[in-house]
Nucleic acid binder design. Structure first.
Lengths: 266, 266
DNA sequence: CGACACCTTGAAGAGGTTCAAGAAATGTGG
DNA sequence: CCACATTTCTTGAACCTCTTCAAGGTGTCG
């Protein structure tokens, strides 16, 4: 419901790098990388490119950058220069209001693109924080725009990425605007497991990279409510929860919770 | 907070057409129009274009379309072909879940662009419904992409429009995830009056084009709560409300309600 | 091993919803 | 132009969900 990632490829969870053998050359902090050989290509690149076009994209994606768990890839107010494709690791993005309110706007994993918020005002309007040690491909936006003018498949791909983010956020608005706590958590778990599954992980078992408080912020709930709802699902035999380790025992039950807005005729 | 429109131009509220004198030629349902002379240009077009570039954009924006109050410009599932620039009138966009839940994702007015949701899957994923008789400029998306490859200012403008929508939705998520009823309605009114003011209307007085139920859907509240909160603001002397006619008596009070998350230090 | 961050659970309370009834506006057809 | 039907809005009262506050448990890392 919230976000659909169509293609699947085998990607490791955790901080293990992907396609390490394909790296062309490396320096301590910034590492040259080739999209043409990246396992995540299906997730972040358009399909059906010629060898030449792929080569030019390789050159656009200049370097990689490592981000330590807990530190920010970019922060609110920072100058916008690039989009980032996540290679490994797990991020949250959050916005803050003037009075110090905080809202997690999304959780991002390998193959997903972050930084789109910065384009409008040439400055970022949210923080992107790594929830585990991570690595991203840096794609300078002026180069993206330049190459997009020459490679129409890339141009359309960029448009699709932005549109996908808009549609994803529509789903979050539906969740925040009309669902109750159990429905929200069920939708969240289904979305997470689906995205992980699309990356080659288990359909039923995974490790949460974020705290109850971060889940709560994303879902518009207090951390206690998240915890209680986990306990409820656990009592009902729908999931098994040990701290951050989650095993889904009954996916259909979760789907039912999301789709059973008790009003059936309205 | 939610959405900032920088430039102001004199635009009428209601269904009065704008820049009528500039129309080149017209047919009953589709009317040829020139962006180069449109009063709304500052809102929907990039700045600093050459005469030639403007001329090519004029050709891209083929025709206009009228949409009767209550009918849809496009609907969920429909094939995506074009983006639409609102010339006159007022729209809501809403998504629906499988089980029939409905969520208003935004209200759009003159100069704003709708249809971005359709790009990802080549089909629209929401409905755009006119809340009053409206008129839009049709911009076929393949032509936008073609021209974007040639005119980099247009390309960047399209990217900014999409990024702006993403940032706007971040603001809505913050509202839905962390604000209480009074805060939500205050933020909503401030946002609405700001956008209207940027179009040349009063800073304090306006007519709501949507029902209490639609406001409630957008804000994640029931229509009764919206009504009660209006009454509360009215009792407190902050606004004057007569059905859909609203006059803001104390803008600062509204700002205080939004920014006074009672926790001052956290 | 101790300090710290994170998670769970209970009890009381607040904010918003639900249900219901009536009032005000709007639209329709004679 | 008026009467009637329909939609929209307001308000009250009871209820429910989620929050708040509080305490204790669990896990992790230097």
């Amino acid at each position: 419901m919230l976000d659909v990632k169509p293609s699947a490829s085998a990607v490791t969870q955790g901080a293990k790098p992907v396609g390490e053998a394909k790296i062309l050359f490396m320096t301590p902090q910034s590492i040259k990388v080739a999209c043409s050989n990246c396992n995540l290509r299906e997730l972040c690149m358009p399909m059906g490119l010629s060898a030449d076009e792929l080569d030019r994209i390789d050159k656009m994606v200049g370097t990689r950058r490592r981000v330590r768990r807990g530190s920010a890839l970019f922060s609110n107010g920072e100058k916008f220069t690039s989009l980032y494709a996540i290679r490994t690791g797990f991020f949250k993005t959050c916005v803050a209001s003037e009075d110090g309110r905080d809202q997690v706007t999304g959780f991002q994993m390998a193959g997903e693109i972050i930084g789109l918020d910065g384009i409008v005002h040439d400055h970022h309007t949210c923080d992107a924080v790594a929830l585990e040690d991570a690595e991203v491909c840096i794609m300078p936006f002026d180069l993206i725009e330049k190459l997009s003018r020459e490679v129409s498949a890339l141009q359309h791909h960029v448009h699709k990425i932005m549109s996908r983010e808009i549609v994803r956020e529509h789903g979050v608005m539906l969740l925040l605007g009309s669902m109750r706590a159990e429905e929200r958590l069920a939708a969240f778990l289904l979305n997470l497991v689906q995205r992980l599954h699309a990356r080659g992980f288990s359909q039923s078992e995974f490790v949460l990279r974020m705290t109850r408080e971060e889940i709560g912020s994303y879902l518009g709930l207090k951390l206690e409510t998240v915890s209680r709802t986990f306990s409820k699902f656990s009592e009902d035999g729908i999931v098994e929860v040990k701290q951050r380790h989650v095993r889904i025992l009954n996916t259909d039950a979760l789907r039912l919770i999301v789709n059973n807005n008790q009003l059936s005729g309205q």
